[in-house]
Amino acid sequence: MPQTNYQTQQEFFVDMQRCIGCRACEMACAECETNGHESMIHVNYVDRAVTIQTTVQVCMHCDDPVCANVCPADAISKDEFGVVHTANTARCIGCSNCVMACPFGVPKKNEAYDLMMKCNMCYDRTSAGKKPMCATVCPTQALYYGTREEMARMRPNSTPVNNFLFGNEKVSTKVNIMMPKGSTQLIVD
């Protein structure tokens, strides 16, 4: 990688309860130069039958990324800052292993390109010391990029959690999800 100004003290925080489904993040994501102007972020209804709550999903940048492990073409890599990069365009064979194996449902397969694409935390911006596009436009700060201290000051009743349990698998990530104070992990069953 070229010389960077990546701010290691800055972290990504996702607060699902604050998402209002405005999709500003989707529009902003498409401005990211590294995506080739494709939006990589997901906005979903949590459970539309019972609640109007929406939620937003960025790549969680796992410590041991399943997507990279199941890639048969060695197309996905994690850098020294813990950012899991989108598929290397020369290597990706469009098999969708990563799309189906990611426990968070993040990677997208672009059928026309025969290529997997995913959020790489706006590396063009974060490597220059800026915040990711989605976090700069989110009106409710459901997506926030900053320091742990800033977060603790702003959300005293929340705890950032980056440990998840999917069945028997414990997954730890670079990106945090805001949980009620004192939580240590999010169990997805």
Binding site: N44, D47, M179, S183, I187
Partner: peptide, 17 residues
């Protein structure tokens, strides 16, 4: 499915809340 996984994550968060 990827969409199902994202929803289940959201539901798990809602449950914790």
């Amino acid at each position: 499915s990827p969409e199902g996984k994202r929803s289940r994550l959201g539901m798990a968060h809602l449950k914790a809340r």
